[in-house]
Nucleic acid binder design. Structure first.
Lengths: 223, 223
DNA sequence: CATCAAAAGTGCGTACACGCAAGTTTGCGC
DNA sequence: GCGCAAACTTGCGTGTACGCACTTTTGATG
């Protein structure tokens, strides 16, 4: 049984062009944003740099922030899912997922790190970046479901969504230097906030509470 | 030591007016949308009906959909958090949360149900509605953290986010009659989709996989 | 009660998202 | 190769989001 999203389609000549356009827009958006600063880039500029009309640009991205951010996040979802699938079937599912996530979020090249710095400077970009975490849900659901078997399809969906949420929280905590409007929710004035450890630490810490859920799911479908 | 979000502020006369305006906008948005259909309502109309300028409208809501939907979701977050807090300290945290969520999502009046029907007719409204699930995170984090103690503050955040994600999934499954573009992710061609049970059932089912995580958290901080 | 700083409301201008109805390309069946 | 249907692109038009500078309101202080 072949998976419709991964192996099937022999790229398709048409699809190729689409992806090329998408990538051209990504690159253009990020490059321009880095050159002039994010606020000095209009969609018209991005479209022109990519050689398409502004209207076409909007067929690919729903917002300017999305275009810029997507150059960084690219196909992280697919890489994470692949990383999970790559682990031997013997390892604990929770570990496989955790390691895959950490691995794919820390393989940050120099160029990528530079872009991240840019993203942190604008709230709109930060939000768009955090929103990308939900995009790992579908592929992650697929690989988890594969390990849990058909009976756990529903569970897989919830677990994948929880992982995405945990990752989002980890990223929030990580790219928050310190000064921050108290949107943390009504917490004690003690201000006992985690001192923002390294990203891998934050990710592991955020995923830790979900481990029992993974274990239980695995136990239930694999007696 | 008083908590800034809950007990402190004796309503504040100024704050009252703000909430009044917000509610006026909510009501106006929903009413107009129900009268003429969602696409025949411009922000100008809503603002006028609420007696404020269009610009002010945008100081309260970032999108037209948000305004309409918020009339339905109102303060559900607070009600859910309160419902959890209301359960006796003895009951299992997982049960307290599950029941609170189910309870607050099924207490749907006639008027509310009518509005939900409207929401399902437009994708943009559906999305806005699903997005409101994340708003339960802060208050839910607070009540969960209270039960887990300071050591579990971090865990509480992740659990709350997971609950929000699960609720979102349940709602997605519920307000999806049948015909749907396959955004479900790469699944087997078997199309083994859950036959969309009642909302309470969907909610319980979605929260079920998280129960072990709650139990473990509770066990860890309360030996 | 007078005064004043902070906060909410407003008008305006710019850029953006997106529906619609063309025009153009792609790839399939014959 | 031919033509056709579906998919992609584009120009146009409308409504929307939001920064900025300014006026009005609020509520605390002397």
């Amino acid at each position: 049984m072949w998976n419709a999203d991964t192996v099937t389609t022999p790229p398709g000549l048409r699809e190729r062009k689409k992806q090329a356009t998408r990538e051209a827009l990504r690159k253009a958006a990020l490059r321009l944003a880095m050159e002039r600063g994010p606020d000095q880039v209009r969609v018209e500029d991005i479209a022109e740099a990519a050689g398409v009309s502004p209207r076409t640009y909007n067929n690919y991205f729903a917002s300017r922030e999305q275009a810029i951010v997507s150059a960084v996040t690219a196909d992280r979802e697919a890489r994470i899912a692949a990383a999970v699938a790559a682990r031997p079937a013997g390892v604990r599912l929770a570990d496989a997922v955790t390691e895959a996530v950490v691995e794919q979020y820390t393989n940050t090249g120099e160029r990528e790190h530079e872009a991240l710095l840019l993203i942190t400077t604008r709230t709109a970009l930060r939000d768009a970046f955090l929103d990308t975490t939900t995009s790992i849900e579908p592929p992650l659901t697929a690989v988890i479901a594969e390990r849990l078997g058909d009976a756990g399809a529903h569970t897989a969906r919830v677990l994948a969504a929880s992982v995405a949420a945990a990752v989002r929280i980890a990223l929030e905590g990580w790219l928050r230097p310190a000064g921050n409007a108290g949107a943390t929710g009504s917490f004690g004035a003690g201000g006992l906030v985690v001192p923002s450890g390294s990203l891998p630490d934050q990710l592991r810490a955020a995923l830790l509470p979900l481990v029992p859920a993974f274990d239980a799911a695995e136990r239930r479908t694999r007696p």
